[in-house]
Deep mutational scan, measured.
Amino acid sequence: GATAVSEWTEYKTADGKTYYYNNRTDESTWEKPQELK
């Protein structure tokens, strides 16, 4: 099967917290998305 390329990108805020942003859905989350686990 084809490997899905994750749409999630990991970013850090100014105070060093990590969050994740999805370019396709324009969604952001503090929790690590399922695709990255």
Rank of each mutant, 00 (worst) to 15 (best):
K37Y: 15
L36W: 10
R24D: 09
D15K: 02
W8F: 03
S28M: 15
W8H: 01
Y20Q: 01
T3Q: 14
D15E: 09
A2N: 12
L36D: 08
E31I: 10
E31A: 05
E27I: 06
T18Y: 09
E31F: 08
W30L: 09
S28F: 15
A14Q: 10
E31G: 04
V5A: 14
K12W: 07
E7H: 08
L36N: 08
R24I: 15
E27Q: 09
N23S: 15
G1T: 14
A2M: 12
K32Y: 05
E10M: 08
G16H: 02
V5P: 12
E27S: 06
T18G: 03
L36R: 01
T25N: 05
T13K: 02
T9L: 09
Y11H: 13
W8N: 00
R24G: 08
E31M: 06
A2R: 01
N22C: 00
T13A: 08
K37A: 15
G16N: 04
S28N: 07
E7P: 08
Y21A: 03
S28Y: 15
E31C: 10
D15H: 04
T29P: 01
D15S: 07
A14W: 10
G1W: 14
E27D: 04
N23C: 04
S6C: 08
N23H: 15
K17T: 09
A4S: 13
N23T: 12
L36V: 06
W30G: 06
T3W: 11
S6A: 11
P33D: 03
K37F: 15
E7I: 06
A14N: 10
W8R: 01
W8T: 01
G16R: 00
E35V: 07
T18M: 05
Y20P: 02
Q34L: 12
Y20T: 00
K17D: 09
T9G: 08
G16T: 00
A4R: 01
P33S: 01
Y20D: 02
T25H: 02
K12R: 11
E10K: 03
A14I: 10
A14Y: 03
Y11P: 00
Q34Y: 10
E10T: 09
A4W: 12
P33K: 01
L36P: 05
Y19K: 04
Y11E: 08
V5D: 12
W30R: 05
S28P: 02
E35Q: 07
G16K: 01
K37H: 14
S6W: 09
T25F: 03
Y11K: 14
G1I: 14
K17A: 08
K32T: 07
T9P: 00
E31R: 05
E27P: 01
Y19S: 02
T29Q: 12
E7F: 07
K12H: 11
T13L: 04
R24P: 03
E7M: 08
R24L: 15
W30Y: 11
K32Q: 08
T29H: 06
Y21D: 03
N23L: 07
S6R: 07
E31V: 09
T3K: 02
R24F: 15
K17M: 09
E7N: 08
Y21L: 04
E10D: 02
G1D: 13
T9N: 08
L36F: 11
T9H: 10
Y20W: 15
E31Y: 07
N22W: 00
Y20R: 00
E10H: 02
E7K: 03
T13Y: 03
L36I: 10
G1E: 13
N22A: 01
Y21R: 07
K32P: 06
K12V: 15
T9I: 14
T9R: 10
Y11A: 06
K37M: 15
V5M: 13
T25A: 03
T29L: 06
W8G: 00
T18W: 05
N22P: 02
L36T: 05
A2Q: 12
Y11M: 15
N22G: 00
R24H: 12
Q34N: 13
Y20G: 00
T29A: 08
T3A: 13
R24N: 11
N22D: 04
K12Y: 10
K12D: 03
W8E: 00
T9W: 08
D15L: 04
T18V: 12
G16M: 00
K12S: 08
T29I: 07
S6D: 12
W30N: 08
N22K: 01
T13G: 10
A14R: 05
P33L: 02
G16P: 00
T25Y: 03
K17F: 07
T9M: 11
T13V: 03
W8S: 01
T13N: 09
D15G: 07
Q34P: 13
Y19I: 09
Y19T: 02
T13H: 05
S28W: 15
E7L: 07
N23F: 10
T13I: 01
K37E: 15
K37D: 15
T9Y: 09
E31T: 10
E31S: 06
E31Q: 09
N23M: 09
V5L: 13
T25P: 01
Y19P: 02
P33G: 02
A14D: 10
E31H: 07
A4I: 14
S28T: 15
T25K: 04
S28A: 13
T29D: 03
G16I: 00
S6L: 09
E27R: 04
S28R: 15
S6P: 12
A14E: 11
E35K: 03
Y20S: 00
A4Q: 14
W8V: 01
E27N: 04
T3Y: 06
D15M: 03
T29F: 07
W30K: 04
S28L: 15
Y19F: 10
Y11L: 15
S28V: 15
L36E: 07
V5H: 13
G1S: 13
E35A: 12
Y21V: 11
S6Q: 11
E35D: 12
D15F: 04
L36H: 08
K17W: 05
W8Q: 01
Y19R: 03
K17E: 09
E10S: 05
K17L: 11
D15A: 06
Q34D: 15
P33H: 01
Y11G: 06
Q34W: 14
E27K: 07
E7A: 07
T29G: 03
D15N: 08
T25W: 03
K17R: 14
D15W: 04
W30D: 10
Y11N: 05
K37T: 15
T3S: 13
T13Q: 04
G16V: 00
A4G: 13
T25L: 05
A4F: 10
S6Y: 10
L36Q: 06
T13R: 03
N22I: 01
T13W: 02
T9D: 06
A4V: 13
E31N: 07
P33V: 02
N23Y: 11
P33Q: 02
W30Q: 08
A4K: 05
A4E: 12
A2G: 14
E31L: 07
A2F: 13
S6E: 11
Y11I: 14
N22L: 00
K32L: 10
W30E: 09
A14H: 10
E7G: 09
T18D: 05
Y11Q: 10
K32R: 10
S28H: 14
T29N: 04
K12M: 11
A4N: 12
E35F: 07
V5N: 11
K17I: 09
T18N: 06
E7Y: 09
G1F: 14
E31D: 12
E31K: 05
D15Y: 04
V5E: 14
E35Y: 06
T13S: 08
T3N: 14
Y19M: 08
G16D: 04
V5S: 14
W8Y: 02
Y21F: 06
